[in-house]
Each structure stands twice: as C-alpha cells, then as structure tokens.
Computed example of a mutant assay.
Amino acid sequence: MSLKAISAKDAASLDKDLMDMGGWSLDQLMELAGLSVSQAVWKVHPPSKGKNVLVVCGPGNNGGDGLVAARHLAQYGYTPSVYYPKEGKNELYQRLKTQLHSLSVPFTTDFASALSSTTFVVDAIFGFSFGGPLRAPFGEIVSQIESSSVPVLSVDAPSSWDIQSGPPKEGPGAKFMPQALISLTAPKPCVQYYRGRHFIGGRFLTKSIADKYGLDCPQYPGIEQVLEIGVDAEGRL
C-alpha cells in the first residue's frame, strides 16, 4: 500500500483545520500521535529485543509526541529514558514531563552515555516544520545518532532532513537513514528518499479533511494505531 504525500505548508494547515473545524485539541492530537509512535516501536523493536529505549526530543510538537510515546513505552514494560536538551515552552510539555516523572522515567543530560547504553532510539527532534540548518546542540546529536549502530525510529521525518528535498548534501544527517520511519497523518515529500520500514500513524484524519487535501484515509486494521505502508511521494506536494 502507498499513500500520497503532503507538503509542510498543507500539513500545518491540516492540523489547524482539525482544531478549528474538527473540534480537536493539540493535547488530543499529540496523544494519538505519541500513541502511534509507541506502537510503531513495539512492531519494529519489541521488548524481547531490548527494553532500553532512548527518546530524543526536540523543543516543538515533534518532541511532545516523543514525550507521549515515552509514557506509553513505560506502560508497555520498556525502560525508556528521555534526552530533552531544549525544552518546549508550552505548558503542555511541562505536564507531559510531570507525567513521566510520575512513572519514574529518567531525563538524562549525558547523551553520549545514554546512546551507548540503549538498545533503540526514537528520533523525535524535528518534524514537518523543520527548515534547517541544524542549530546547536542538535547537529552534534544527529551526528552521534548517525554514526551509532543503534537502530532508530524517526517521527514524521528523519531529523536534519529537509521535508521537501530529503537528506542534506553534507554535514550532520547527510548519511542518516533510520531503520524505521513513522509518518503522522500523511507522508511528507522527503519519503521518496527514504529506504526502510515506513509506517503511517495518527488515527484522526476525517474524510472531509482528507478530501480537502487530496489525501487517502488509511484503512487501519482493527484497533491498530499504525499501518506499515509503502512510499509514494507523488500527488499533493
């Protein structure tokens, strides 16, 4: 199965429509997105492969999705830890942190040590709004993830990639190819450069909004929040 891609501009507009016209709150969208991420982790890296999962969060909504995912992973029986070098200022992120503290999920400040001792990484640094270049400390973080042998799931796009044109020509992220990618709501154009396991998640797309943006409504099986799909970056870009 393949789905059409959506541009960063349309993705932002779609989220606004969901909230303004569809009655969704940012909290709800982030909760379902993070739940999808956690389920994708379970599919590509079940606890039998190693319970230590390092969730690397950026300062925006992509990082918020990572915080939600870390909470669900803790509830599933993983041992997640979070690296959150530049915290988001929205009060929502602080509440997500409180929820993790209540579950005794640690926040680490030593990224290199955490990376060397984990069995899996969730890259929740930057999503569809990223425009580059990488600012400190994220260039070094991406470089370390890129050079590590630890498997990675990226959320919405591999961090450092341009949403339209894919990986940078040089520098941090130029050779970054995570083992798995979960596109939220719809794939972004950069998926045409991606080679790995690709999932769709975010089970909140309505038919009317999908029709407005020329998208397909994924047919999620049963109670699944994620669906493994192919890649088709043709269509609405």
Rank of each mutant, 00 (worst) to 15 (best):
C57Y: 07
L14P: 03
N90F: 05
L134M: 05
G88W: 02
G222S: 14
I229G: 07
P85S: 13
Q144T: 11
Q144H: 07
L103W: 03
P137C: 10
A210Y: 00
A70Y: 04
G214F: 08
I163P: 05
D65L: 06
T109H: 15
T109G: 12
A136T: 11
Q39M: 09
T98Q: 15
A174F: 08
V191F: 07
K16M: 10
I200F: 13
Y83G: 01
V41K: 12
G88Q: 09
M21P: 02
G214S: 06
T119P: 00
G131L: 14
D15G: 01
A174C: 13
G196R: 12
L115F: 02
W24V: 04
S102V: 07
H101A: 14
D162V: 03
V53G: 12
G22Q: 04
V53N: 08
V226C: 00
V68M: 01
D232T: 07
I6N: 05
G77F: 10
Q179P: 01
P221V: 03
G166S: 09
G166C: 08
N62R: 06
A11E: 04
D211N: 15
D123G: 10
P133N: 10
G22M: 11
A186N: 07
P189G: 09
P167L: 09
E170M: 12
F128S: 09
L184G: 02
S160C: 03
S25R: 01
S38K: 02
S117Q: 14
I229L: 07
S2R: 15
K97P: 05
V142P: 05
I145V: 13
E140G: 14
M19L: 00
P59V: 04
W161D: 12
S102G: 12
I163D: 02
L103G: 08
D65A: 06
L205E: 11
I223W: 10
Q39V: 03
V121L: 00
I141F: 06
P158V: 06
N52M: 10
P167M: 12
P133C: 07
P167I: 06
G235M: 06
S13L: 10
L103C: 01
W161Q: 08
H72P: 00
K49C: 11
L54W: 00
F138T: 02
